[in-house]
Design a protein around this nucleic acid. Structure first.
Lengths: 105, 105
DNA sequence: ACTTCATATGAAAGAATGCTCATATAAAGA
DNA sequence: TCTTTATATGAGCATTCTTTCATATGAAGT
């Protein structure tokens, strides 16, 4: 923990700070999927899903595997599992009412 | 990891996806500080620091302790240490050139 | 009560993001 | 090569976020 987190982390968090991308990750955690499959599950346009997968892929938060025409995306569990586990612990402690922040909203 | 990460995590990441707030966290990791002290270290205005500390406090990513006029802020290490440790591991693997993303700026 | 120091808050301008629509690329089959 | 299917890309609008400036609150000392 001596490394300066600032620059290193900014893009990382930017990527995760978006409901669409989080929803995509959530679905991909259940199982790897193609873009259209993901779009269907999320109820959103293909182009939007594609746009949002791009930065996630660039930061290696998800991986891609091409099967002919289809591109199968999967989450980088090694990184994302511990992150979400930590947040869940945090939430259990500070956000008792099912994900609602203690202080306001 | 059965909990849906989406809604729970969004605000959490929004908070961290900001250079000013990350810089503040970075400084507070070294030592707890007052707002003015932090503003001085960061080279930024007091009001800006104050504005940015507010959401971090609301999400319990930092804590506050009032000493008379001064408000001493400190990081929630229990949550932030494992998060930053995970990111650092991720970065070591995928961002070899000192925090630079593999796949283009 | 008044002054000073420390922090918080409000509003508004500017910048950055996200989403949508249209279109481009790319692979596979006829 | 033409068509179809799957995904990616680009531009523009709308929205949200960030920052700044001005001001308010609040605590402590005189």
């Amino acid at each position: 923990m001596k490394k300066r987190p600032t620059k290193l982390c900014h893009r990382f968090f930017i990527n995760l700070a978006n409901p669409t991308r989080l929803a995509a990750i959530e679905q991909l955690m259940d199982k790897p999927m193609s873009v259209n499959e993901l779009a269907a599950v999320l109820g959103q346009e293909q182009s939007m899903v594609s746009h949002n997968l791009k930065p996630l892929l660039q930061c290696n938060l998800i991986t891609i595997q091409r099967q002919g025409k289809k591109h199968i995306y999967a989450v980088n569990q090694e990184t994302l599992n511990p992150i979400f586990a930590t947040i869940q612990t945090h939430a259990q402690k500070y956000c008792p009412a099912g994900g609602k922040c203690l202080k306001g909203e």
